[in-house]
């Protein structure tokens, strides 16, 4: 964890209302884990804004995992090629942030230009882990099959997870968005991942919500990772383990699945380091600070009926 002024190497709109920003951040890049975040001081605003680390590119590493990616039939967005981290050109390790322009902070950030320096603090928080699978009557084994579920801009930390999980793991990414235009350009994602696009209007892939099709993959998956709106988590929590939603006393007997599902929560963050207690939530394991005990939590630990974000 470090506070530093980082130089923007590119900042471009890659989807309508969504920017991809690359920054020289060698200290953060060196230690960041998928699921961790940084906070950015945005102009005169009082609260730093949290952003999941979307990708990391280590300057000395070769080849950069995304260098080998191929277009998967989708239209290649013109901005993305320019925005992509170029291994040869970079002297310092970089991180990327993917953010939807929604309020004052992200508007300010979207207006920063290449060469501008911004104040970053990170990497912060707990990250996604890939634990062993412990099934009944079986010796624990390494997890092979990872199911990633992204809702909208929630794809941001999951791309970093993909980057780290490949090629040791098989990965399926279910990716839901309102319409085809809002889907993160597939061409910029690495090969070796099976994408399952879902759009609310059916303009690309399956029609519906990402959470609708999660049940189809439960037999395949060893681990599930999700990032998206709370409604998506609620639906998934119900799919995976209906009993806790009906009350503690029902116990675990009704569990439909022993699958572990890790989700990334977003609440308004104050300090980002566990000092101000602005982001505390009540969980099945007691009070937890989203900024430092999270943002990654196990889906079963969250009291979804209480979560108000």
């Amino acid at each position: 964890m470090k506070q530093s002024l980082c130089t923007i190497t590119s900042n471009l709109e890659v989807m309508p209302g969504v920017n991809l920003m690359w920054l020289e951040a060698p200290d953060i890049a060196a230690t960041a884990q998928p699921g961790q975040f940084v906070t950015v001081r945005c102009g005169d605003l009082i609260l730093r804004r949290p952003f999941s680390i979307h990708r990391v590119a280590i300057a000395s590493q070769s080849p950069e995992p995304f260098a080998s990616c191929h277009s998967e039939g989708g239209e290649r967005p013109k901005n993305l090629a320019q925005c992509k981290f170029r291994e040869g050109a970079a002297k310092q390790s970089q991180i990327a942030l993917l953010f939807r322009v929604l309020g004052k902070g992200t508007l300010w950030l979207s207006r920063r230009r290449e060469g501008d320096k911004i104040d970053l603090l990170g990497p912060l928080g707990k990250w996604f882990s890939i634990p062993s699978v412990i099934a009944r009557c079986e010796v624990p084994r390494q997890s092979r099959n990872l199911l990633l579920v992204a809702g909208g801009i929630g794809v941001a930390p999951l791309v970093f997870l993909l980057q780290r999980a490949l090629p040791q793991h098989q990965v399926i990414l279910i990716y839901g968005a309102s319409t085809a235009k809002e889907l993160y350009p597939f061409s910029s994602l690495p090969g070796g991942v099976q994408f399952v696009p879902v759009t609310e209007d059916g303009s690309r892939g399956r029609k519906g919500l990402a959470s609708d099709i999660v049940p189809e993959f439960l037999d395949w998956a060893d681990q599930i990772y999700a990032c998206g709106p709370v409604g998506m988590y609620r639906a998934m929590a119900l799919t995976l383990n209906p009993s806790p939603l009906k009350g503690e006393e029902k116990g675990e007997g009704e569990k439909r699945s022993n699958l572990k599902c890790q989700v990334s929560l977003e609440v308004r963050i104050g300090c980002g380091i566990g000092a101000c207690y602005g982001c505390s939530i009540n969980t099945r394991k007691g009070l937890k600070k989203v900024c430092c005990d999270g943002p990654v939590f196990e889906i079963d630990d969250i009291l979804w009926e209480e979560v108000k974000i």
Partner: peptide, 9 residues
């Protein structure tokens, strides 16, 4: 403490 949300800018 209090329930979320606890902070407003």
């Amino acid at each position: 403490g209090n329930p979320q949300p606890r902070l407003v800018e």
